[in-house]
């Protein structure tokens, strides 16, 4: 947890480091994809870093995060190392899922990353389930679902929010509204342009935040976490944001669904440079502090990539194991 210490320097440092790590890893992965080092799909989180970072800054390792197909940012913000993430996309034994998952199946339950997913919607229900466990066990844990605007039209959104609401479950529903489900505009998929307003249909609070403002996201998450831990039930947070890379690497940056101008406008609202300006104006860190953070992270990620590329492949003989816990 990085939001409770009251130490603004520490918080800003963590937020900046985390966002910049996500950006650096994603850009590295994009290059690796072009180089043929990634064997399957690769959906990057570039442009949306403030959401995962702002939320995860308030979480402990015991809080359970359920993520999406665009989940690298959530994994890194939850504490997965760049080396373990890159190695997973490279299909290596040292990957966070030991090569079983790739980009869309990142698991690190020991630090509360309960999986990214190739299917849109189920994370919402599973986060409600983590909330149910927390309620039954009185553990104080919180379930967190990250999902996109594309999940909002899915039945899981309705059922998950309703279940969490009626049982007062400690859950955060974080909708990363990046305006497009793959390449289908949200304006086409919904008559209601906002997601947060739907919360009232379930009798729970719905909060809309600027998803490119990491402090605004963090503040909303802290209040939702307070509610959750106090037994007051779930909160829906809609973070308005935008991905400034293609839906998946190898696809076009624009297409019939959006224009170069729109992408350029959103790049102007880049969450990292925005936070950098904020830090400098609040004087929590200096230019040289930030430059040092950036160069350290670049070195770390380069090293992580080299480590991943040199890591062994999983032994094919282990492919059948872990289907069942028990053998018969």
């Amino acid at each position: 947890m990085h939001g409770d210490s009251g130490d603004r320097f520490e918080l800003h440092r963590w937020l900046y480091r985390t966002m910049f790590t996500i950006r650096t890893v994603e850009e590295r992965l994009a290059r690796s994809f072009m180089a043929g080092l990634i064997h399957g799909a690769c959906h990057t989180y570039v442009g949306e870093e403030a959401v995962a970072t702002g939320v995860c800054a308030g979480l402990t390792d015991d809080d359970a995060v359920f993520s999406t197909h665009r989940g690298h940012g959530h994994a890194l913000a939850k504490g997965v190392s760049p080396a373990a993430l890159i190695a997973e996309l490279y299909g290596r034994e040292t990957g966070v899922s030991h090569g079983r998952g790739g980009s869309m199946h990142l698991f690190a339950p020991e630090i509360g990353l309960m999986g990214t997913s190739g299917i849109v919607g189920p994370c919402i229900l599973q986060a409600a389930g983590a909330g149910y466990s927390a309620k039954l066990l009185e553990s104080g844990r919180v379930g967190v679902a990250f999902f996109g605007d594309g999940a909002v039209g899915n039945g899981a959104f309705h059922e998950g929010l309703n279940l969490a609401a009626i049982y007062d479950l400690p859950v955060l529903f974080i909708c990363e509204n990046n305006l497009y489900a793959t390449e289908v505009p949200f304006s086409h998929a919904s008559r209601n342009p906002d997601v947060a307003s739907r919360a009232s249909g379930y009798g729970i609070p719905g909060v809309m935040v600027d998803g490119n403002d990491v402090l605004a996201v963090h503040e909303a998450a802290i209040e939702a976490l307070r509610r959750a831990r106090a037994g007051e039930g779930p909160t829906l947070i809609e973070a308005k944001t935008y991905r400034t890379r293609p839906h998946a690497e190898g696809m076009g940056l624009t297409g019939v669904y959006r224009t170069e101008e729109e992408v350029a406008e959103w790049r102007e609202k880049d969450p990292i440079s925005r936070f950098r300006r904020r830090i400098l104006s609040e004087e929590t860190m200096t230019e040289s502090d930030l430059d040092r953070i950036e160069s350290d992270i670049r070195n770390e990620v380069d090293e992580a990539e080299r480590e991943a590329a040199a890591a062994p492949w999983p032994d094919g003989g282990t492919a059948p194991s872990h289907v069942y816990r028990e053998t018969t």
């Binding site: 359970a64 309960m114 999986g115 409600a128 039954l136 059922e159």
Partner: peptide, 28 residues
């Protein structure tokens, strides 16, 4: 009521919820 939980008619919803619960230390 927490251990004997009545649900709405939403099989997908409560199966998904129970999946998440089983992942986080309970036995639905």
């Amino acid at each position: 009521p927490v251990r004997l939980c009545d649900t709405p008619i939403c099989e997908r919803g409560f199966i998904g919820m129970c999946t998440g619960a089983a992942m986080t230390g309970t036995r639905p």
